[in-house]
C-alpha cells in the first residue's frame, strides 16, 4: 500500500523529488492556460466589467483555503489514529499554505468589494467565516511554533485541528445566522447552477492550477520539514555527551 511505503521519509523524499518536476510543469501549464482564458477568453460581466476577473483568483484561493483545512484534518487523523509518521509533517506543511490561500482570498475579496460595495471590508457572512478560518490557521501555526518537541506539537495541533474541523460547520452556520440578523443577503453568489460555460471553464482551469500549486508547495514544504528535523536530530546527537542508546542488563534476583 502506497501510504505505508511513504512512512519511510527517505522513500518519501526520493518519490517526491521524482514527482515534483512533473507537478511543477503541469502547474505552470495550467496557470498559463487558465490565466490566458481568464483574461482573454472569458467575457466581461455586463454589470461588473473587468472586475469579475478577480473571481478567477478569488474563487480558487477560497476553494484551496477549505481544501487545505480538509487535508490538515485528514493528516491529523493520520497522526492520532493511524500514527503515520509523516502525517504531522503534512499537517504542519499545509498550515502556512492554507493561511496564505486564505489571506489571498480575503485580499482579493476585499479588492473586489471596493468597486462593488464601495468599501474594502463588509461583514459579509462568507468573508467573516473566511476571516475566522484565517485566525484558526494562524493559531495552529503559533501552536506549532511555541512547542519545541515536534512530536508533541504535532499531536497537540492535531487535536486542535480536529476540534476546529468539528467546529467549522457550526461557525459557518452561526455566522450565517448572525449575518441574516444584521445585514441583507450577500450579492456575491458565484455558486449556483447558472454559471455560464464561458466563465465556468476558465474558473475550473484556474482551480486546477491552484490545486497543483498547492501540491507542489506542499511537497516542497514537507521535504523542508523532514530535512529540518534531520538537522535537529543530527545536532542533538552531536550535542549528546553519551550515546543515545542504553542497554540493560539484569542479574537474577538474589533470593531465587
Amino acid at each position: 500500500m502506497a501510504l505505508i511505503d511513504l512512512a519511510n521519509p527517505t522513500r518519501f523524499l526520493s518519490l517526491s523529488r521524482a514527482l515534483l518536476p512533473w507537478l511543477t510543469g503541469l502547474c505552470v501549464l495550467a496557470f498559463a492556460v487558465g490565466l490566458y482564458m481568464a483574461f482573454f477568453v472569458a467575457p466581461e460581466d455586463y454589470q461588473q466589467g473587468d472586475t469579475v476577473r478577480i473571481m478567477y483568483i478569488h474563487v480558487p484561493a477560497a476553494w484551496l483555503a477549505m481544501m487545505c483545512y480538509s487535508i490538515m484534518a485528514l493528516s491529523s487523523l493520520g497522526t492520532l489514529v493511524w500514527k503515520h509518521p509523516l502525517a504531522d509533517v503534512s499537517a504542519k506543511a499545509a498550515a502556512p499554505l492554507g493561511a496564505a490561500f486564505t489571506f489571498m482570498s480575503l485580499i482579493t475579496g476585499s479588492l473586489w468589494g471596493k468597486p462593488m460595495w464601495g468599501t474594502y471590508w463588509v461583514w459579509d457572512a462568507r468573508l467573516t467565516s473566511v476571516l475566522v478560518l484565517f485566525i484558526m490557521y494562524l493559531g495552529l501555526m503559533a501552536l506549532w511554533r511555541t512547542m519545541e518537541d515536534p512530536i508533541k506539537a504535532g499531536k497537540a495541533a492535531a487535536v486542535l485541528t480536529l476540534v476546529g474541523a468539528l467546529n467549522l460547520p457550526i461557525i459557518k452556520f452561526s455566522v450565517d445566522w448572525w449575518n441574516t440578523l444584521h445585514q441583507p443577503a450577500s450579492v456575491m453568489r458565484m455558486d449556483g447552477p447558472t454559471i455560464h460555460p464561458d466563465i465556468l471553464w476558465p474558473l475550473l482551469v484556474m482551480a486546477l492550477a491552484f490545486t497543483l500549486l498547492f501540491f507542489v508547495l506542499h511537497l516542497m514544504a514537507m521535504q523542508n520539514e523532514i530535512l529540518r528535523r534531520r538537522v535537529t536530530a543530527l545536532r542533538q546527537r552531536a550535542a549528546a555527551i553519551r550515546p543515545a542508546t542504553a542497554t540493560a542488563s539484569v542479574r537474577s534476583a538474589a533470593a531465587e
Binding site: R237, T245, A246, T247, A248, R251, A253
Partner: peptide, 19 residues
C-alpha cells in the same frame, strides 16, 4: 531484598547508533 539490579549504561558508540 530480594532485589535485582538494572544498570543503564552507554554501551554503543555514537557513530554506531542505528535509529
Amino acid at each position: 531484598s530480594p532485589a535485582a539490579a538494572l544498570h543503564l549504561s552507554a554501551a554503543v558508540a555514537p557513530d554506531a547508533h542505528e535509529d
